[in-house]
Design a protein around this nucleic acid. Sequence first.
DNA 1: TTGTGTTTTATTGCCTCC
DNA 2: GGAGGCAATAAAACACAA
Length: 286
Amino acid sequence: MPFLGDGDCYFQGTRVGQFTMEESSKKRPFFSSIDDMVEEEYYDEQLTEKKRHLTHEQVRMLEKSFEEENKLEPERKTELAKKLGLQPRQVAVWYQNRRARWKTKTLERDYNHLKSCYDILKSDYKSIAKENENLKAEIFLEHFKEPLSTRVNVFVTSLVLYVFISLTKKLEPKDVLGTSIVGQDSNSAIGEVGDIPAPSDKIKVEDHLSVGHGGSAVVDDYDGPQLLDSGDSYFPDDSYLSEYVVVYVDRSEEDDGGDDGHKHFRYPFETTDHEDNDALGWWVWS
DNA sequence: TTGTGTTTTATTGCCTCC
DNA sequence: GGAGGCAATAAAACACAA
């Protein structure tokens, strides 16, 4: 006979469950061997106690009760057990399993709902992205409708400016530690060459270097010079501009004729040239 | 009939609350 | 510490195809 460990219960020669000594004494008869079990008077009773499904009527009543309240109060449990001819424990177990099934179903439903929401959003995103691409292409084509001379002019000017700025940076005065002193004192170094606006001077810059200059960049109240770019400027690095270009602005320049109360300088390094070139940026004094 | 997958009933161990 | 809930799991019952 095989060794039967604590809690192994047998029914008709097969293991029917595991119980601790304590539990088995309380709930079900404990058989230490198959022979013991066969000899027990309880054997016949076990046949009727064999696990079986509840009747349709019992399930119907339990379902109805569950619909009303999915938690089982002790009084309700006793009442239902009495009414259905079941052990209170069976009713409790049924509720437990029913809640588990309900939870699984709910999770499944929630998952499907979220998935459909996700699919809709994904589809929306795709159509918006496509529309965005179309608009970009439209803007690109619009740009090439401009005269070639204008485009070349913008490009060359940008290039010259970039080279100029790069050279200026290399030639800038340095202190004994090799640190640039530009910007440390508005009255020193390059500041002596031109007319650097004091930090308190309000300078606004608009970028007309960008393609599609119809909508110039936003201008704010930043205390120092700045270049605002509408996003597609030819400048390789706008930070150069904000740092240096302002040195060459001529504050004595007359108004350019605009009625906005500002003076516009089309070229940072050509303070008096008012020749038309709408593709270029200008500085604005406020 | 048998193998296999699914559903239902029941147990176990852990956790929280009172 | 006991009662009750829950997740994980076992095992019986059931369904169904081959």
